[in-house]
Amino acid sequence: MNTLIIQIINGLHVGSVYALIALGYTMVYGIVKLINFAHGDVIMVGAYITLSLLSSAALPFGIAAGLGILFCAALGVAVERIAYKPLRNAPRISSLITTIGVSYFLQNAVQMIYSPTPRPFPIRINIPAVAIGSLRISGLTFVTILVAVLLMIALEAFVRRTRTGKAMRAVSEDLQAAQLMGVNINTTISVTFAIGAALAAVGAILYSTAYPSISPTMGAMPGLKAFIAAVLGGIGIMPGAMLGGFLMGVAESLTKGYISTQLSDAVVFGILIVVLLVKPSGILGRHASEKV
C-alpha cells in the first residue's frame, strides 16, 4: 500500500512538471492553433541559462532561476515575432515546420555554445523531507508539486480576472472577432508565448533538480510527453493540460513501478491513442460541431 502511494506521489512530482510545460503548448494552441514543437527546447534553454548563472556568475539560486525564467519569456516572444508572426496567414503546416526549424536551431546553438556532453545540474537547495504519518515525502517532491499547483492557480486567476486574460480568452475564442472588438491581438499573442515559455522554464528548473543531468537534447522527451498531456486533457483547454500532465506522470510512474521501465513510454502513448479514439477532443474537450 505504501509503495503504491509513493509511486503515485512520484508520479505527481513528474506530472506537475509535465503539466507546467503542457500549459505552454495548450495556451499557444488555444490562441493560434499552432503545435509549437520548439516549446520542448525552451525547457532546455531555461535549464542551460540557469546553470550558467549558477556556476559561472555564482548567483544565488533564486536570482539565477528568476533570470532564467525571464530569459525564456523573452526568448518565447522573440521566437514568436521572428518565426511565427510573419506566417500567421500562411498554410498552418508552414508554421509547424518553422517551429521544427526553431527547435533544431535552439538545440544546435546550445550544442555549439556549451558542447553536446551532458552536464550535471548543481542542486543548491536542501529541503527537509516532509513526514505525513508513516510516509516520508522528499522535500523536493513536495516543493515541486506545491510550486506547480500555486502557479496553475495564479495562471487561472490571471486568465479569469485580468484584462489581458480576458483578451487571451477572447482571441482563442475567435481571433478575427476579438480584433474587431479592439483587442490588440499582437500583444495578446506575445503575452501568451511569454507566459508559456516562462512556465516551461519553471518546469525546466524543477525537472533539472529531479533529473540533474542536462544536455542539448534533454527537451525532446519531456516536451513530447507534455504535448501528449495537453492533448490528453483536451488541447486548448488549460485545466485539461493540468489534468493531463498529472495523469501522464502517475501513469508513467505506475508503469515503471509495476510493469516495466522500458514500456512506460509505450503505455503513455497507448493511453493517448485510446483517449483520442474514444474522445477525440480530449478528456475535458468540448465536441466541436462541424461547420459546413
Binding site: T98, Y104, N108
Partner: peptide, 16 residues
C-alpha cells in the same frame, strides 16, 4: 545543422 535549421526557417518565411 545550424545552417540546416536556419535554411528551414528562412525557406518557410519566404516561400511558405
Amino acid at each position: 545543422m545550424l545552417i540546416y535549421s536556419l535554411a528551414l526557417i528562412l525557406m518557410m518565411l519566404f516561400r511558405p
